[in-house]
């Protein structure tokens, strides 16, 4: 995938370029808002990684302008932690996700994967009614879950968690992503919220079946895949 990084801090940009390059992405870099805007218009990128604070044209205005021009490339905002309102502003301004600096690279890679996947899914035949991975299937309308033809009774939270995993099948999702998207929690809890709910979901979905579908990625998060 071709990814454009618009980031003025040279060190951070170098790190991002290297980390994403190692994951097989082709990464371009622009160091200021004006150059970034020109490249984003011209290039056919799978995703944009945009710093909120840029010299010249700031990140939020840049993305607003792109959206006004009809460019729908998914955008991941990078913000500093001092901006408490950055998240809401960023998402309202046309961003697809945000990441607070400093961040772990696994987190960055996972989030870039999630937003490009989401964009690809939207380009397809609209919102799916069923999500499937191997012999596990959920019905988004009837809110039912089946594995190997057997009904599984999930609570509302567990269903949402499984739905998010299924939407990102084959991609690593981090704890922070789960907290934000499943529970709408925007801080890191001190108790093992994610582990507890994940273990309950696993008991229902994986226990007693031949193959495990939910895998733990040590130090990063989880992935749902058939293999």
């Amino acid at each position: 995938m071709r990814i454009l990084v618009i980031e003025d801090d040279r060190k951070t940009a170098e790190h991002i370029v290297r980390a994403l390059g190692e994951h097989g992405h082709v990464v371009e870099h622009a160091a200021d808002g004006a150059t970034g805007l020109a490249r984003a218009r011209a290039g056919d990128h799978a995703a944009l990684i945009v710093d909120r604070m840029l010299p010249g044209l700031d990140g939020l205005s840049l993305v607003r302008q792109l959206r006004d021009e009809g460019v729908v490339t998914p955008v991941l905002f990078l913000t500093t932690m001092s901006g408490l309102n950055d998240r809401v502003e960023g998402l309202e301004g046309g961003g697809d996700d945000y990441l607070v600096k400093p961040f772990a690279f696994a987190e960055l890679v996972a989030r870039v994967g999630a937003i490009t996947r989401r964009a690809a899914a939207l380009e397809g035949s609209g919102e799916p009614v069923r999500l499937r991975c191997a012999d596990l299937e959920i019905d988004l309308i009837r809110r039912t879950t089946q594995r190997a033809g057997r009904d599984i009774d999930l609570q509302a939270q567990e269903f949402r968690l499984l739905e998010y995993l299924l939407r990102n099948t084959g991609r690593v999702v981090t704890r922070a992503m789960l907290l934000e998207h499943v529970w709408d929690i925007h801080f890191i809890p001190r108790t093992n919220v994610v582990e507890t709910h994940m273990s309950r979901l696993r008991t229902k979905v994986d226990r007693g079946f031949e193959r495990e579908l939910i895998h733990t990625v040590r130090g990063v998060g989880y992935v749902l895949r058939a293999g």
Partner: peptide
């Protein structure tokens, strides 16, 4: 600036779902 009407009942119900299991 980000203040909006918000039902504490709803907030607490959400927290029960998250932290009950924990």
């Amino acid at each position: 600036a980000a203040f909006a009407p918000l039902d504490l009942k709803e907030v607490l119900a959400g927290l029960r779902e998250v932290f009950g299991a924990v």
